[in-house]
Design a protein around this nucleic acid. Structure first.
Length: 803
RNA sequence: GCGAGGGUGGCGGAACUGGCAGACGCGCUGGACUUAGGAUCCAGUGGGAAACCAUGCGGGUUCAAGUCCCGCCUCUCGCACCA
């Protein structure tokens, strides 16, 4: 029987206060030590407060930070707030308070909640994207982008969310709806700021190869960049000196191109189509425009379109082929026009069938025949293609491109799906874009020495709803003087998207109070790049692509000295409610971290987060399951009720200890936290049975447990009489030899069926093993009247006798 | 349709390069201590009376398969008229 556990929440507070007083986690550049930068994706401080999903990643990164510190690394482990953005702005509007007030409250609450876990963050490095001292540098980077022709204005049809009353980037739209609020997205033609991320497409793609990131995330980024190799081919228009250029990845099918299709918005149409046909095209354009993206994609099965009355010449066959328009061809990809090969492209096949257009087969399967009820899109052998007949289609791709280039009919080309980044939002709560519009000088950047360009200090404001930013209605702020000519001018009223601040925050952490630069050269040289980045997989394309883009740009202008910001990335799985569903207020299945912390203290919650299952898989929060780690830490505390023995551990105890050290060490390094905890449980179950526990064992236990349960272990460490903090204690090492069993149990199988088990010394010779088996009673029974055909002996593993 | 990752007891999950399937924990059963126990401790716990049967299903390779090969089913996530 033992007494109740210590009041753990109280113990948490005690040690957290001590650590803070001691400045335990404050790090400065130390050239004598090897640095390690372990970063969490900083949270968006919403009004709902922390979720039990947040601490999963934070606990993992904290365990690693503490572990590597104990191993002698100089670990940088910061935390901050990604605080600009729509949810806060909407919340503030609802509560009729200023977004700054809402942000401050939310940050305050998040910080309080996160601190309760006792993470080893260096809080002196805290950053907040809404702090003018921070966003001064976000604006500085924008101006650099502008200077380098990577930021530009464009009037383009953008994704407009009618509920959020703002434009969205393509990445923020899913299935034609707003990723944030779910409203159906409309197309609106609006003046926008754009970032030329497409210029970095190739580098963003090739840079992925050397990164230690989950394959899934890399695949998503590759997919999003969408590189295609192919050819641009010119088709002369009959009765005109104009040509239609198409992009195709299948130049091998050129001889089968029997018609062409242009995107309805294609500019060539306005030039060449007859007035009569143009009327119909305009009508079609209106229909297409009225369709939301959602309708366009969900109705994708049925093709629509119409003939333009125009004809083009297939440069290979010299045949005249009709030109159609259809919305299955997109203006913004390739050239906005395709050569249609009905026999070898399923989309063209469907369109051709609908409009009774000819279907020419130019590739046949290597073997067998093709049932012609759909397009044949695989590789095959070339037919009806003049001098290319007989080639494999993959070879023909190369040969035909060569032929096109020789005859000036086309050229090799690479296309990307990636499009430029729509970088403006028509909202208040974001970084103002530091640009002035002058009647005389046009677009003028705000001079660097006038940064930060702060948001106007208004007590309250409303959205305009007209598509313009609320900033547009704040006249004192909008009207300004041109920095160039001094004449009257207006400020840019769009603000930056939420992703802006998170593109470079990991750079600010390394020198957060620098007034002269983003960060000092010395700090950049020492701390960057990030060695390990931990966060949710939901940022696979958005944040991680944008941040890589900015980082590469900063590399190009000499600010940072490495091409990639995050060398190693790991995603935590989601924490779901016990019913396997996402936790949500509406389902009423949300676990509140504050309540669990009140009940169990930080260590139990930290350990349960890690014990639920593999770190990178989703797991279910079980209010019963958490009792398991609660009991475990209770057992640990109970081990310390008797003073430890000064005797050295015997061979058996030593073996158990080294086995535990080994397992925990290897598991922490490979981020298998659940099995590391299991190994400690096994060891504690063993120690619990001992009548007196050697102090060596107790101290070692505290060391290896401390990254997981820093508060309890610190308490017990000090109860043992130590004055030091476990954070700077050394991680114990194990000796392989001491982890070995002196006798191992080996299964004896007969014809693959388990029949007996024998105990032998490890590394025992085969003959001795055979002898041991034959001496065993059970084996003798089974082997009666049998001839042994074969012995299979896997040293220290298994014995199989074939009879 | 394409891409990625999963399917193991009542539950969460273990299992190194093929070598005792079910570690550890939850739950459950019995016991101990107790005025009490929802605390704690001890024992048991995949199914089956047993031979045996069991890692989504069906084949295969092997002395030996959760693990390797072939063919399916199913779930989750991402992309999706990208020429």
């Amino acid at each position: 029987m033992r007494k109740e556990y210590t009041d753990w929440p109280e113990m948490d507070r005690k040690w957290q206060a001590e650590w803070e007083k001691a400045g335990l986690f404050h790090k400065q550049i130390d050239p004598q030590k090897q640095k390690l930068y372990i970063l969490d994706m900083f949270p968006y401080p919403s009004a709902n407060g922390l979720h039990v999903g947040h601490p999963e990643g934070y606990t993992a990164s904290d365990i690693l930070s503490r572990y590597y510190t104990m191993k002698g690394w100089h670990v940088l482990h910061p935390m901050g707030w990604d605080a600009f953005g729509l949810p806060t702005e909407n919340y503030a509007l609802k509560m009729k308070i200023h977004p700054q007030t809402a942000t401050d409250e939310n940050v305050e609450n998040f910080r309080r909640q996160i601190k309760r876990f006792g993470f080893s963050y260096d809080w002196t490095r805290e950053v907040n994207t809404t702090d003018p001292d921070y966003y001064k540098w976000t604006q500085w980077i924008f101006l650099k982008l502008f200077e380098n022709d990577l930021a530009y204005e464009a009037k383009i049809p953008i994704n407009w969310c009618p509920d959020c009353k703002t434009g969205l980037a393509n990445e923020e739209v899913s299935d034609g709806t707003c990723e944030r609020c779910g409203a159906v997205i409309e197309r609106r033609n609006m003046r926008q700021w754009m970032l030329r991320i497409t210029k970095y497409a190739e580098r963003l793609l090739s840079g992925l190869d050397d990164l230690d990131w989950p394959e899934k995330i890399k695949a998503m980024q590759r997919n999003w960049i969408g590189k295609s190799l192919g050819a641009l081919i010119n088709f002369p228009i009959v009765g005109s000196d104009k040509k239609v250029q198409v992009f195709t990845t299948r130049p091998d099918t050129l001889f089968g191109a029997t018609y062409m299709v242009l995107a309805p918005e294609h500019p060539l149409l306005d030039e060449l189509v007859s007035a009569q046909d143009m009327d119909k095209i305009r009508q079609y354009r209106d229909i297409v425009k009225a369709k939301s993206d959602l309708e366009r994609t969900s109705l994708s099965k049925d093709k629509t379109g119409l003939a333009t009355g125009l004809f083009a010449v297939n440069p290979a066959t010299k045949e005249q082929i009709p030109i159609y328009v259809s919305d299955y061809v997109l203006l913004h990809y390739g050239t906005g026009a395709v050569m249609a090969v009905a026999a070898h492209d399923q989309r063209d096949y469907e369109f051709a069938t609908l409009f009774h257009l000819p279907i020419y087969t130019v590739i046949e399967p290597f073997q067998g025949t093709w049932t012609e009820d759909r397009a044949f899109e695989d590789e095959g052998r070339m037919i009806h293609s003049a001098q290319f007949n007989g080639l494999k289609s993959s070879e023909a791709i190369i040969k035909i491109i060569e032929w096109l280039e020789e005859n000036h009919l086309g050229e090799r080309s690479i296309q990307y799906k990636l499009r430029d980044w729509v970088f403006s939002r028509q909202r208040f709560w974001g970084e103002p874009i530091p640009i002035v519009h002058c009647e005389h000088c046009g677009i003028v950047p705000v001079p660097y020495d006038q940064l930060p360009l702060t948001l106007p200090d208004v007590p309250f404001y409303e959205t305009s709803g007209t598509g313009e930013s609320p900033l547009a209605t704040i006249h004192d702020w909008v009207n300004t003087l041109c920095p160039k000519c001094g004449g009257p001018a207006k400020r840019e009223t769009n603000t930056m998207p939420q992703w802006a601040g998170s593109c470079w925050y990991y750079i600010r952490y390394i020198d957060p109070h620098n007034q002269e630069r983003l960060a000092s050269e010395e700090a950049i040289r020492y701390w960057l790049p990030v060695d390990l980045y931990i966060g949710g997989a939901e940022h696979a394309v958005l944040h991680l692509m944008y941040a890589r883009f900015w980082h590469k740009f900063l590399y190009d202008i000499g600010v940072v000295n490495h091409e990639e910001p995050f060398l190693r990335l790991r995603n935590q799985g989601m924490v779901l409610a016990a019913d396997g569903k996402k936790m949500s207020k509406s389902l009423g299945n949300v676990i509140n971290p504050d309540e669990v912390l009140d009940q169990y203290g930080a260590d139990v919650v930290r350990m349960y987060e890690m014990f639920m299952g593999p770190f990178d898989q989703e797991s279910l929060w079980s209010t019963q399951g958490i009792e398991g780690v609660h009991r475990f830490l209770g057992k640990v505390e109970a081990l310390f009720e008797q003073p430890g023995s000064s005797n050295q551990p015997n061979a058996e105890a030593l073996k158990k200890m080294h086995q535990a050290i080994k397992k925990v060490t290897l598991d922490v390094e490979s981020m298998n936290f659940n099995t590391a905890i299991s190994a400690m449980m096994i060891w504690v179950n063993y120690l619990q049975k001992m009548t007196s526990i050697p102090v060596t064992c107790l101290e070692t236990l505290l060391r290896i447990l401390s990254p997981f349960a820093p508060h309890l272990t610190e308490e017990l460490w000090h109860r043992l009489g130590h004055r030091s903090y476990l954070y700077y204690e050394t991680w114990p090492t194990f000796e392989e030899a001491l982890t070995k069993e002196e006798l191992i149990e080996i299964p004896v199988q007969i014809n693959g069926k388990l029949r007996d088990k024998i105990f032998v010394a490890p590394g025992l010779e085969e003959e001795a093993i055979k002898k041991a088996v034959l001496e065993s009673e059970k084996a003798q029974q089974c082997l009666e009247n049998a001839t042994i055909k074969k012995w299979i002996i896997i040293p220290d593993r298994t014995i199989n006798i074939v009879i």
